[in-house]
Design a binder for these strands. Structure first.
Length: 269
DNA sequence: ATGGTTGTCGTACAA
């Protein structure tokens, strides 16, 4: 039995915030770190700086300017084969790997779900339609994979499903990220894979829990108008392995901070 | 009060 720490962070440019990875590493010491919004084509990915932090195993799936995901790991892994290209867009929103743990293989999915634009209407807003379509595809695909074993799904899912995943349930009901149609979609995805919400495993549903604070607030900390957009899900067989979690809120106050903070879950496997 | 900030790219667009 040993501890496995998996962290996830929407880094909002891996090149700009490469120095912050050292601070994250010092704070959380993750064995595996999943990044979203790397905004970096693969040929420009900062492999040297990341290797210097001790992440010897890296898989990046990036493109110019937008999106992009990566898995940084101290544990060897193989790329999962034959995972879908969601919505056939080639837009670098998912990477799947299989970690080679001493206790056996563990599947890890790193997702960056589309933010979905401003208008919560699939007819009026193609970005919202894309968000719902990607989730519908993922729902159908994970339903086919069931029953999932030794599986973890992390990422910026861009939906805050519970009432206390946002600063004001009432005021955000019409705001993309917390609309009933999105919440339904996310919950359907969770049910399809029989996923267990690892963050709410540790934090009661009645308690406010955020992982993102807008750049647009004058004082993000004083306003505290946050949302829980970043998630860690585990298959039911890993429920008993959940040992600890940390949401690195101080990271929101770092110099040149991302608007998302790193989230970590530790399991005993 | 329908604002506000950030990153990439290149002076627009996505978040």
């Amino acid at each position: 039995m040993s501890a496995l720490r998996i962290a996830t962070w929407n880094i909002n440019s891996v090149r700009l915030r490469l120095p912050l990875l050292a601070d994250l590493d010092a704070a959380l010491r993750p064995d595996v770190l999943c990044l979203q919004e790397t905004k970096c084509p693969d040929e420009l990915f900062p492999h040297e700086g990341i290797r210097a932090l001790g992440f010897e195993h890296v898989m990046a799936r990036g493109m110019k300017g937008y999106n992009g995901v990566a898995v940084l790991s101290r544990i060897p892994f193989t790329a999962r084969a034959n995972d879908p290209d969601w919505c056939m867009k080639g837009d670098c929103r998912h990477v799947g790997v299989t970690l080679a743990l001493p206790s056996g293989p563990l599947d890890l999915h790193n997702f960056y779900v589309p933010a979905g634009g401003d208008i919560p209407d699939r007819e009026a807003n193609p970005k919202f339609a894309h968000k719902l379509d990607l989730i519908a595809e993922a729902t159908a695909w994970f339903a086919q994979q069931a029953p999932l074993r030794r599986s973890v799904l992390v990422g910026d899912l861009n939906i805050a499903p519970l009432e206390h995943d946002v600063w004001s349930h009432k005021q955000l009901l019409d705001v993309v990220s917390h609309t009933p149609i999105e919440v339904e979609a996310l919950q359907g995805w969770m049910r399809a894979g029989d996923w267990h919400d690892a963050l709410r495993h540790f934090v009661p549903a009645e308690q406010k829990l955020y992982t993102w604070w807008s750049y647009r607030a004058k004082d993000w900390e004083a306003a505290d108008r946050g949302r829980r957009l970043d998630h860690v899900w585990v298959s039911q067989d890993l429920r008993g392995a959940l040992a600890r979690h940390e949401i690195l809120k101080p990271a929101r106050g770092w110099e040149k901070a991302s608007d998302h903070v790193p989230v970590m879950v530790e399991m005993t496997l």
